[in-house]
Amino acid sequence: MKSFEYTITDPVGIHARPAGLLVKAIKGFAGSAVTITKGEKSVNALKLMALMQMGIKQGDTVRIDVEGGDEEAVASAIEEFFKANL
């Protein structure tokens, strides 16, 4: 498993647009399961509504875990995505 932490800088947090783009991006990585954790709550990053219902806001630090597939490459691609969009 490959993990990293990220602190959200987007003023609205993980809102519909980036959440949608994220789901789209992750669908492209066959064989990898991506989990996003904030505090004690975790969610499969493919679940768009559940991800939005986490209510992740600006300043929140989340942990992203990638399991299976090319973990290294997927994790760094997702990290890039967060930096660019969130």
């Binding site: 519909a16 647009r17 949608g20 789209k24 499969n44 493919l46 768009l48 509504m49």
Partner: peptide, 19 residues
């Protein structure tokens, strides 16, 4: 584009796993 993205997000919500 911003407004279009809304409906693209709606498309994905239609296929949301939990839903």
């Amino acid at each position: 584009d911003e407004a279009a993205m809304l409906f693209e997000t709606h498309q994905m919500m239609c296929e949301d796993m939990d839903y």
